[in-house]
Structures are given as C-alpha cells and as structure tokens.
C-alpha cells in the first residue's frame, strides 16, 4: 500500500484530530475484543467463565484447556483432541498449495507470454470457476471422489482444493506476468531459450513476490475451508475447521468453553501467524482477489 496520504493537504484541527483518534481507538477495541475473549478464556478454569467472568482476566491461570483441546478433548466419537486434525490440515494444505501455485504460475505464463486465439475466454472460464457457489459441485464431486477411490481421504481433499484453487493462482500469476516485459521473453527466444527454459531462467527468478502472495492466499483459503472438509472427509481425515466445529457443537456433557476457545485459537494460529509475518503480501493477495483483470 502506498504511503502518500491523499489528505496530506487536508488539514484537520486539533479538536477534530482528538475525535478521530478516539473513534479509531474504539474500533481497535471492537476488532480486538473477540481475540481478547478467546485468549483470556482459554487460560482460565471453566468455573470462572460460568460465573460470568468472561471479560475478566483469569483469576487462576491455567494451560489445562490448551492441553485438553490439543490431546484429550472429545471430537466426535474419539477423545483425541485436535492434534490429529491439525496434522490432517497440514497434510492437506501443503501439497494443495504447492501444486496449485506451480500450475497457476505455468498457466499465467502461457496466458500472457504465449497468447493464442481465445486465451481470454479460457482465462474468463478459469476465473469464474473461483466464484461459483460450491454447493453446485458438491453432489457430483462426492460421486467422483467415490469413483476415484478418494472419498473420505486427505488426498481427496487435496484434489478438491487443487481443482478449485487453480483459478485464483492463475489469476495472480497472470496479472503479475502481464506487467512483466514481453521484450525479455522475446530476447530470450532470440538467445535460443525454449518454453521451459524461459520460464525457469527468466520468469521464475522474478516471481518471488507474487509467489508469496499466491501461497499465502491459497494457504489461508484452504486452511480455513469448512464446506469441502465437512462434505468430503471421514472422521480420520477431517481438517482442523471441521474438528473444531465438532468440538464446539458436541451436545454431550458440560460445555467446556475454555477448551473451545483454546481450540479456536489453535485453528486460527497458522493463518494468523502468516498474516502477522507477511501482512503486506496478505493484503496484496486480498486486493488482487477482488480487483481482477
């Protein structure tokens, strides 16, 4: 994001500035409140929450809810905690992100530097595929995964995320490579480099920033997905989001709010970490996903 405030020239009085800072601070509270609630309540005994102390700092600090959420809490039929599901999510996210990024880079390269008749239509079709309501593909995909023997497995989920993630990764790389000077590609052609050599030696070394954006976007989206996870996984292949929901919604026994909050933070941590470490790229990814073309 550029740093030139458009209102460098707009002067505001000190009274107005006080009001502005107050409003901005209040909204900081609004956005931070749920995070505060989650963190604070994941560190206190259940009894303090039940006594109406949700907003208070823990009277007694404890890590038990975290331990429980991670390794012993009842998820569905098994008292395994979220650990196995966290692993499922990792196993699902890594290959899906890697493959869709590589394919997106190649697609973007073809669509901008090896243009052919109808390439815009191809891209338009890829792009629209990102935005369809996935309810429209749930029924046939369930059958297709069954036919391929991937129903209820992690590879099945990888496949689904790959198929519906390609549009976005192609979008990112296409828009980026569009700005990449075509003369470089032509120079390399004259120098004798072929299709893959140009990609590998000329395009890829300059693709760092967009690769980061694309990886962050795909990682966030796939990690946070719930619909596909809920539709296409079995108990032993559920991703983190589905397991968290099962933990929170389970109707048996006492509701262990502190454990739920600890679990929610665990589910949020990877993407939150990415956001804090690489926020700039994260925002750029969000923007590129909305301002297309």
């Amino acid at each position: 994001m550029s740093t030139n405030a458009s209102s460098q020239i707009i002067r505001t009085g000190s009274g107005a500035r006080f009001v502005i800072y107050t409003i901005l601070a209040l909204f900081c509270l609004y956005y931070l409140l749920p995070l505060y609630v989650m963190v604070v309540n994941s560190l206190k005994p259940l009894s303090e929450i039940q006594a109406g102390g949700m907003m208070a700092l823990p009277g007694e600090w404890t890590l038990d809810p975290w331990k429980s959420a991670w390794s012993t809490a009842q998820i569905g039929v098994a008292a395994t905690g979220l650990k196995p599901y966290f692993l499922n999510s990792i196993l699902m996210v890594v290959p899906a992100v890697a493959i869709s990024t590589v394919l997106g880079a190649l697609n973007g390269y073809v669509l901008t530097k090896w243009r052919f008749r109808g390439d815009t239509i191809v891209f338009g079709l890829l792009l629209f595929g990102c935005f369809i309501p996935f309810q429209m593909v749930l029924i046939p995909m369930a059958r297709m995964l069954g036919l391929m023997g991937l129903a209820g497995t992690v590879p099945g989920l990888i496949f689904v995320h790959l198929v519906y993630g390609i549009g976005f990764s192609t979008l990112y790389f296409r828009n980026y490579y569009e700005q990449f000077p075509t003369e470089l590609v032509r120079a390399a052609m004259i120098d004798g480099a072929g299709f893959f050599t140009i990609f590998y030696r000329i395009m890829l070394p300059s693709s760092g920033p967009i690769a980061v954006v694309c990886i962050i976007w795909q990682f966030t989206n796939i990690w946070n997905d719930f619909l596909f996870g809920a539709s296409f996984s079995d108990f032993d292949s559920q991703p983190m989001t589905v397991a968290l929901n099962n933990l929170v919604q389970s109707s048996t026994g006492v509701k262990e709010y502190n454990v739920h909050f600890a679990g929610a933070i665990m589910a949020a941590l990877p993407t939150l970490l990415v956001y804090i470490v690489a926020g700039r790229y994260f925002v750029r990814g969000l923007m590129a996903g909305s301002v297309k073309g």
Binding site: P181, E183, L184, R186, A187, I190, G192, A193, S206
Partner: peptide
C-alpha cells in the same frame, strides 16, 4: 526457422536485460 536458429541478434527498445 526459430529466432534462435537464424543467427541474428537483437537490441530492444527497453534493452530487455534479464533482471536476475
């Protein structure tokens, strides 16, 4: 014949130097 096989060389307007 491919550009590479024509034994030509080209200087571009933007110079097209490989940035990496």
């Amino acid at each position: 014949v491919r550009p590479a096989d024509r034994n030509i060389a080209m200087v571009f307007q933007s110079y097209a130097l490989y940035p990496n």
